[in-house]
Design a protein around this nucleic acid. Structure first.
Lengths: 236, 236
DNA sequence: CGATCGCTTGATTCCGATCAACAGGAGTGG
DNA sequence: CCACTCCTGTTGATCGGAATCAAGCGATCG
């Protein structure tokens, strides 16, 4: 339970460029195109993180808010002995690290080399104090995160391995640019730690789904959904 | 998995009294004593629910926000086949049912006969539009719910039965008025559905903890914590 | 080319689920 | 008051799904 590829310890990041206005282009826990997205695009600075590099740690001050520009990010909680539960994967366009309190509740790490837009939380909060629409967007963002976790809670508490993997595939597919195909940025270990399983069980379950012709695995990181109906049925 | 005491279907409730200003007095996901508590106390109406009665259903319009006055409430999600995952227990003082979106994401039911204060969500939202402090409290409330679920996620995904039960006992103890003693309003089935276990496992684990002199069970609904250190160690 | 890493597959174990029986208490009706 | 039922919780026996232990494979990289 303890052996696992470890991220190098937290070190200062490379600041790549400054207020380079960046447009967002995703859907999910990303941002529609409201004033919040504008503020981020205008005031944000770009930063780069290498694979497995920590972006922020649990219980660190939550002074910054992040939006994925490229690459992917995982946020997770750890137990003493190294058991890990990933709470979410963040893909380009997604905002993460926004807290109402003063500390981060999870750790964030780059899954692959990644660039993110960083903005001071204080900037958003003070904007919110004078712009009701921004305040509402901050609240809505947290509410969406809550909704995501409510679904994950049901999965972790009550679904079996097949149902978990099916839910994961449908979730990833719904966020993928390519219809019917999923390009996974994360390892089997990450998937396992998201679904509350082990890598072996994830791997076996994917093989089962492939044998049932529900999916196809051209490579380990690429998955084609051949029978979404079957997946949705598994999704209970 | 399907047999379980069912709540009678959703029917209109007894309105007991109207703007009877009610003071709140709890700590946890309750409210400190800010403007939000005031608005609820001033504009809320009292309603009564019988044991197992539904307060609102998943996907119903979230027009009202609730605060427990007496009794206890559970909120949960269901799978097709009746598997249930409880997301939270709400005790006197706790606010529940507040959504940023227009629909409830979970079902709420009275665990015991209960009275709750009800207030229109619109009232809070429009207050928030002109009072920044209220807006901030709404956001903070959702953030606290999120934090609770992040802890539950780790429990459901990565803890074993003993660790789950220990965490539950410590959580209940931290919210109990009496130090070192917990009076449970909910059944073993409720506990099991909160912890992602079965009633048998909950029962057996409590017995184990009693045999280890970590707790004492004067009756099935009353638990004395005899060795919190042991519980905290289990809490990983 | 050897080493490492990520993934898959097989064998076995084990924790919690399931199946089953029963005990204690509360409520009900005679 | 007791006899009865219903309900909740406990305990025992067994089962099964996922974890663990272990081996091997292919890709990537120094």
């Amino acid at each position: 339970m303890l052996t696992r590829t470890l991220a190098e310890p937290h070190t200062p990041r490379t600041r790549v460029s400054n207020p380079a206005p960046v447009a967002s282009a995703r859907s999910q826990p990303a941002i529609g195109g409201g004033p919040l997205a504008e503020v981020i695009a205008l005031c944000g600075a770009l930063m780069s993180f290498r694979r497995n590099e920590e972006i922020y740690g649990e219980d660190e001050p939550a002074d910054y808010v992040y939006q994925v520009k490229s690459g992917a990010v995982r946020t997770y909680k750890l137990l003493n002995d190294g058991r890990r539960q990933i709470g979410a994967f963040h893909l380009p366009g997604d905002i993460f690290g926004l807290e109402a309190g003063n500390e981060h509740r999870l750790t964030a790490e780059a899954i692959s080399d990644a660039t993110v837009i960083v903005i001071k939380r204080g900037t958003l909060v003070s904007q919110a104090a004078r712009n009701v629409e921004i305040a509402r967007e901050l609240w809505a963002f947290t509410a969406r995160a809550l909704e995501h976790l409510q679904n994950l809670m049901l999965l972790l508490g009550r679904k079996n391995a097949q149902e978990r993997v099916a839910a994961f595939l449908l979730e990833m597919a719904s966020r993928a640019p390519e219809a019917g195909a999923v390009e996974l940025p994360m390892s089997r270990q990450d998937i396992a730690d998201y679904l509350g399983l082990t890598i072996e069980t994830v791997s076996r379950t994917l093989t089962q789904l492939e044998n049932a012709a529900t999916i196809e695995l051209p490579s380990s990181r690429r998955i084609l959904l051949r029978n979404r109906t079957a997946l949705r049925q598994l999704n209970a």
